[in-house]
């Protein structure tokens, strides 16, 4: 399972993580080591085994349809790096 620097660059882009070019190689090596170790899992026979979804089987709890929250725009933008009134502001997006 070889991860090369191109793969690291692609994953970093997917994860929106700036990785300096000179770190790509080292990271590829580290990821390969970790992924090789993950290959241990192939030794486990999981045929017909369902993936685990909950510690205690229980139904998904559901909420009543009622408006119980809102009206906290000021709180929400209080921690924002940049706001325009009650809006969050980000560098211009071109669609």
């Amino acid at each position: 399972m070889a991860v090369d620097t191109d793969t690291v660059r692609r994953i970093a882009m997917l994860a929106r993580l700036n990785v300096p070019e000179d770190e790509l190689d080292g990271l590829a090596g580290e990821l390969n080591k970790i992924l090789d170790w993950m290959d241990l899992l192939n030794g486990a026979d999981t045929d017909g085994v369902a993936p685990m979804t909950a510690v205690k089987p229980m139904p998904l709890r559901q909420r009543a349809d009622a408006v119980t929250e809102g009206g906290i725009a000021e709180d929400l933008v209080a921690n924002a790096p940049e706001a325009a009134g009650a809006f969050f502001a980000v560098p211009k997006v071109i669609e």
Partner: peptide, 20 residues
């Protein structure tokens, strides 16, 4: 009345970020 995973209103055309 409220959103899929929260209790904020779904009403159309509210003040910015007021139904969040």
């Amino acid at each position: 009345e409220s959103k899929l995973f929260s209790g904020a209103s779904t009403a159309f055309g509210g003040e910015a970020n007021a139904q969040v």
